[in-house]
Design a protein around this nucleic acid. Structure first.
Length: 204
DNA sequence: CCGCAGATTGACT
DNA sequence: GTCAATCTGCGGG
């Protein structure tokens, strides 16, 4: 039961004995690894939607690609708060993306949720998206569209409904890979995108 | 299959 | 004024 972290690429190790959100108070990379496989539980219009996170990216204040690199602002303030809350941003004039805040209070770090596989409410998710299969959830903005996540949930405590996270380990045989992040123009070479290798619901 | 343009708004070191 | 942690549809090979 110790062998887990040694088998994964990258330098950060992951202890399995912490619960959300205490497991996210370390580095963004540690938090990212711990969020892989977690369940996102959304109550929306009386329905219960559950998805399993399979792709994430780590960002923090020391990273030129991070929204927090230039310090605290009105837009990014949630990232500087306690771990386990929602940092949601609006981009390209029409999309929302969600991060789970990480680290200690006062340090701007978080984990972008990029892709997930549906576990419950698949029909509703596919109907909301007008798409079936992986394409309904395999991208950060798609994920938010599928689950009805927007600025109303900015700063939301993710231990509470209507949007909650429960940590969950990987399945036997699954393992984590670290790759370059997607869609950024700075610090492109940093391998802070973490995926469940080979999962069908990755964004690519 | 691939690549690219257009959409459309707000934040801004 | 610029540009963005994106997605989609369309046109070409």
């Amino acid at each position: 039961m110790v062998a887990d972290s040694a088998a994964v690429p990258g330098s950060t190790s992951v202890a399995a004995d912490l619960t959300f959100p205490d497991a996210l108070t370390g580095t963004a990379d540690e938090a990212a690894r711990r969020l892989l496989g977690c369940h996102l539980i959304r109550e929306l219009d009386g329905a219960r939607l559950v998805v399993r996170v399979v792709e994430v990216e780590a960002y923090d204040q020391n990273d030129p690609a991070s929204h927090t690199f230039h310090g605290k602002s009105h837009r990014n303030r949630a990232m500087f708060g306690l771990a386990g809350h929602a940092y949601i941003y609006f981009t390209y004039g029409m999309y929302h993306c969600i991060n789970v805040t990480a680290g200690v209070d006062g340090f701007g770090s978080g984990v972008l949720l990029r892709a997930a596989e549906p576990l419950e409410g698949t029909g509703i998710i596919e109907e909301r998206r007008g798409k079936r299969g992986p394409t309904a959830l395999n991208g950060p903005a798609k994920l938010c569209m599928a689950l009805g996540i927007d600025m109303d949930l900015y700063g939301h405590d993710l231990t509470r409904p209507p949007l909650r996270i429960e940590l969950a380990g990987l399945k036997p045989g699954e393992h984590v890979d670290a790759t370059e992040r997607i869609g950024i123009s700075k610090a492109v070479e940093r391998r802070r995108r973490y995926i469940i290798e080979g999962n069908l619901y990755l964004s690519r």
